[in-house]
């Protein structure tokens, strides 16, 4: 498994081994789980408080299901590490962050300078994703 190259939270990346969603039953002692694009992350909602790591895979960068997965986990109150892994390029980084990911493990390590530029592209944002903590432009316009 690829290493975490970007961490947008305090501390170190969670090292616990992940299990597949199918193996993550109510009885399991696992604290880390991996979710594939076709799987329903809402199955995890009853177990969020014992999870330290959810890894969301992007087998192909053109498959954007993981963005919804991340947001709905954060919307449900998940506060542990949320890691994107797989086919990830620098141009996805700011979108991943906005959807609630706080760790990124690209299959191929990214150029650090290019990543830095890409992460700082957007001065503001148009939408409230809520999970990124950013005030959207409409809130700034109306002093919300």
């Amino acid at each position: 498994m690829a290493d975490v190259q970007f961490l947008f939270r305090e501390g170190a990346a969670v090292a616990a081994p992940t299990v597949a969603l199918a193996d993550f039953g109510a009885d399991s002692n696992a604290t880390a789980v991996v979710i594939q694009p076709g799987e329903d992350a809402r199955a995890l909602l009853p177990h969020l408080d014992r999870l330290a790591l959810v890894e969301v895979t992007f087998p192909a960068f053109t498959d954007g299901r993981g963005f919804s997965t991340a947001r709905l986990l954060r919307e449900a109150g998940y506060t542990g590490e949320l890691r994107a892994s797989g086919d990830i390029g620098v141009d996805m980084l700011s979108h991943l962050k906005r959807c609630g990911f706080d760790a990124v493990a690209p299959a191929t390590p990214l150029d650090a300078a290019e990543a830095e530029t890409a992460l700082n592209v957007w001065p503001q944002v148009y939408q409230a994703t809520v999970v990124d903590g950013r005030k959207p432009i409409w809130a700034l316009r109306h002093g919300k």
Binding site: D63, G64, F67, S94, L96, C99, W122, Y126
Partner: peptide, 9 residues
């Protein structure tokens, strides 16, 4: 515009 969840539909 640039909705981060919906750029890889």
């Amino acid at each position: 515009s640039f909705h981060p969840e919906f750029l890889a539909l």
